[in-house]
Amino acid sequence: MADKIHLKMTVNGQPVETLAEPRELLIHVLRERLDITGPHIGCETTHCGACTVDLDGKSVKSCTVFAAQADGAEITTVEGIGSPDKLHVLQEMFREHHGLQCGFCTPGMITRAWRLLQENPTPSEEEIRFGMAGNLCRCTGYQNIVKAIMAAATEMNAAKEAAE
């Protein structure tokens, strides 16, 4: 066993510190050491995207990142995207359009969609299907997830226009 190292990150806007072995995967540090259990473990081979978090402005699969690599990083998980008092429009639209069933993939889906819409605020259905292809869902068949993301984009753009 290697010695533990001291990690500092910003998670959902909060500075956090923890000790971890270098080999500990980011998903495990988030879930086990920082009690952030929104991101889930689905496949462990970088296919399913249930562990997706936002790391320095990129959607990443936290099962394939060592926490040590994320030392100093800014991380956003589904817990940081909205709050119980003010849900993010993506969270609202996933509910509105039945974009989830068992809920296991949902945190990764929403976190990924959140980044996707920042990079492309007006995606076509094809762009959403391509941009979400790193996240597997076993329940919904994706159709309503795509619909939810489309609807969220529309709402967000309308809100932006109204604000301008």
Partner: peptide, 21 residues
């Protein structure tokens, strides 16, 4: 009817077995 389950799932507040600690 919109699902009552979704509030917790969309906010990462589901409680699955690996969340039991």
């Amino acid at each position: 009817r919109k699902r009552v389950e979704d509030a917790r799932f969309t906010q990462g507040k589901g409680n699955y077995v690996d969340d039991v600690k």
